[in-house]
């Protein structure tokens, strides 16, 4: 029987090691596929929509450089509505504020120095941060793999949309994948009954807040989430 000695000195059957590696690869693929597919579909829709407003070259350049669906759709919507540069800059800046809590959540889980963190920051998205926090694999590895796949699908989708691809029919399913994904990530990051209660409260409070004040958008949702997280009881030394 083939054996492998692990770093801890324990002897393990090779079949078990390769089985774990294969299982890890499969779980990575399962994590990446729906995210990348949904982002790719939105990339196609963005490319088709934006190219009629800001032109082909600028559409592709925006996806290559900005890599943020929310910011880019907002930018194109405002340009199409005739908004000025200051209004567009303000709207994109407000959306960019969501990266602050995402970074704060991910940072304690990342090893390595500042250069590595800066590189990973380039793929800091809701999805990469969520999967990095929820995954049992190293957070940096998850962020890098999911982020690279998301970037390729976003840019590739944008190019396809600019070239005339039409996936508008798939938009509802792609949109709902994000809802499902965030519900799954919320469940995976619950470690106690208290976490479940805070997650339920956050969803329940976000709903009426956005129904009453739709303009607060993602920033409002994040404020609600931080407020709910702040109800966690402090540890006593």
């Amino acid at each position: 029987m083939l054996l492998r000695i692990s770093l801890t000195g324990r002897v393990r059957p090779r079949a078990t090691v390769t089985g774990v590696q294969a299982s890890s690869r499969w779980s990575t693929v399962i994590d990446v596929l729906p995210v990348a597919a949904a982002i790719g579909v939105f990339g196609v829709i963005y490319g088709a929509t934006a190219s009629t407003v800001i032109g082909h070259q600028m559409t592709v350049a925006s996806s290559l450089l900005i890599f943020s669906g929310a910011a880019q759709f907002t930018m194109v919507g405002l340009v199409d509505a005739g908004a000025g540069a200051v209004a567009i800059l303000l709207a994109v800046s407000v959306l960019a504020l969501r990266h602050l809590p995402l970074a704060a959540v991910v940072l304690p889980r990342l090893d390595g120095g500042r250069p590595r963190r800066v590189l990973l920051a380039l793929v800091l998205l809701d999805e990469t941060a969520g999967l990095a926090v929820a995954s049992t694999r190293p957070a940096a590895q998850t962020m890098a793999v999911v982020g690279a796949a998301a970037y390729l699908c976003w840019v590739g989708g944008t190019v396809a949309g600019v070239l005339g691809a039409d996936l508008l029919a798939a938009a509802p399913l792609a949109s709902v994948v994000f809802v499902i994904l965030f519900i799954g990530l919320s469940a995976l990051t619950c470690r106690s009954v208290g976490d479940v209660g805070r997650a339920a409260a956050a969803a329940a409070l976000t709903w009426p807040l956005l129904a009453l004040l739709p303009s607060v958008g993602a920033l409002g949702a994040i404020v609600v989430a931080v407020g709910c997280a702040a109800t966690v009881a402090g540890r006593r030394s």
Binding site: A221, A229, G234
Partner: peptide
């Protein structure tokens, strides 16, 4: 402590958003 408790409500809020 707050950041440790943040992911679950954060993703719940982001799910409610769309």
């Amino acid at each position: 402590e707050i950041l440790e408790a943040l992911p679950a409500p954060l993703f719940a809020s982001l799910a409610a958003l769309p």
